[in-house]
C-alpha cells in the first residue's frame, strides 16, 4: 500500500529545495515570527520564559496564509503539467502519493520551525525556561501546520487554479484560527444560530494549540489534530479518484 511513498517524498522534498519555494517560505516565516516576537510580542519586556505570549501565540496567524501558499501547488501543479497521469499509471496507491507529498511539505515546515532556534537559545541564556514546555509548544505548532496543510491539500485536489486554491484555503485556515477568539465567537453567536457557533468553535485549532503551548497537550487534542489531518487527506484521495472517473 505504501510502495513508492518514500520515492515521492524524496522527489517532492528535492523539488522544494531546488526551487525558491522552500527558501522564500523559510525566510519570510523567520522574519515574521522572530520580528513579531521582538516587536508586538514584547519579548524583552514581558520576561516570559515559556515563549507562550511573545512567540508561540502568533504562529497560527502566520500559518493560516503561509501554509496554503506552499500547499497550493500540491495537486494543481500535477494537473497543470499532466504528471498526475504518470503518477496515476505507476504501480503505487493514490494514498501513498498523497502521503509522500504531504510529508515532504510538512518536512519543509519542520525545517522552518527548527530554524527559529535562536529564540530558544536566547530564552535559555536569559532565564530558566521549562524546555519540555517549549518542545510541547513546537509540537503543537507542527500539528497546526499539518492540519492546515491537509486542508490545503483537499482544496488543491478540487481545483487546477492555484489562486482559487490559495484564496479558499486561506479562508478555511483563517476561520479555523479566528474562530477560537472570544470577540469573533461573540459576534458570530449574535449573528448566527447557536448550533452554527458550536460547529465553528469545534473546528478551531486555537483551543487544542493553546493546551499544547501551556504544556498539557491532552490525548483528545492530539486526536483532534490527527483526525482532522487524516480526514482531509482521505478526502483528498476521494476527490482525486472521483476526478479521474
Amino acid at each position: 500500500m505504501f510502495t513508492g511513498l518514500f520515492q515521492i517524498y524524496k522527489r517532492e522534498l528535492a523539488s522544494y529545495f531546488s526551487q525558491l519555494t522552500a527558501y522564500a517560505l523559510i525566510v519570510v516565516f523567520l522574519l515574521l515570527s522572530l520580528g513579531f516576537c521582538f516587536s508586538f510580542g514584547h519579548f524583552m519586556e514581558v520576561g516570559d520564559a515559556s515563549l507562550e505570549y511573545s512567540f508561540f501565540r502568533w504562529l497560527p496567524w502566520f500559518f493560516m496564509f503561509l501554509v496554503p501558499a506552499v500547499g497550493m501547488r500540491l495537486w494543481s501543479d500535477e494537473y497543470r503539467t499532466g504528471t498526475i497521469e504518470l503518477l496515476g499509471t505507476m504501480p503505487v496507491a493514490t494514498i501513498a502519493i498523497i502521503l509522500g507529498k504531504f510529508l515532504a511539505a510538512l518536512s519543509v515546515w519542520s525545517v522552518a520551525l527548527v530554524l527559529t532556534f535562536p529564540v530558544w537559545i536566547l530564552v535559555n541564556y536569559l532565564g530558566d525556561p521549562d524546555n519540555v514546555l517549549i518542545l510541547s509548544s513546537y509540537l503543537g505548532a507542527l500539528l497546526v501546520c499539518a492540519t492546515f496543510l491537509a486542508v490545503t491539500s483537499l482544496v488543491s485536489a478540487f481545483t487546477r487554479d492555484q489562486v482559487v486554491c490559495l484564496v479558499v484555503s486561506v479562508f478555511f485556515c483563517a476561520v479555523m484560527t479566528l474562530a477560537g477568539y472570544e470577540p469573533v465567537l461573540r459576534s458570530v453567536n449574535s449573528l448566527l444560530p447557536e448550533w452554527a457557533g458550536e460547529v465553528l468553535a469545534s473546528a478551531t485549532v486555537d483551543e487544542h494549540y493553546r493546551s499544547a503551548v501551556r504544556g498539557h497537550i491532552r490525548w483528545h487534542d492530539l486526536f483532534w489534530f490527527l483526525s482532522m489531518t487524516a480526514a482531509c487527506l482521505y478526502g483528498t484521495s476521494i476527490v482525486l479518484n472521483a476526478k479521474r472517473s
Partner: peptide
Amino acid sequence: EKAKSCIGYLPESAPLYPEM
C-alpha cells in the same frame, strides 16, 4: 498494481517535472 507494473505509458502531452 500488478497489471500497471507490466505497462509502459507515454501520455499524449508527454508530461515531465520541469525542475528535474
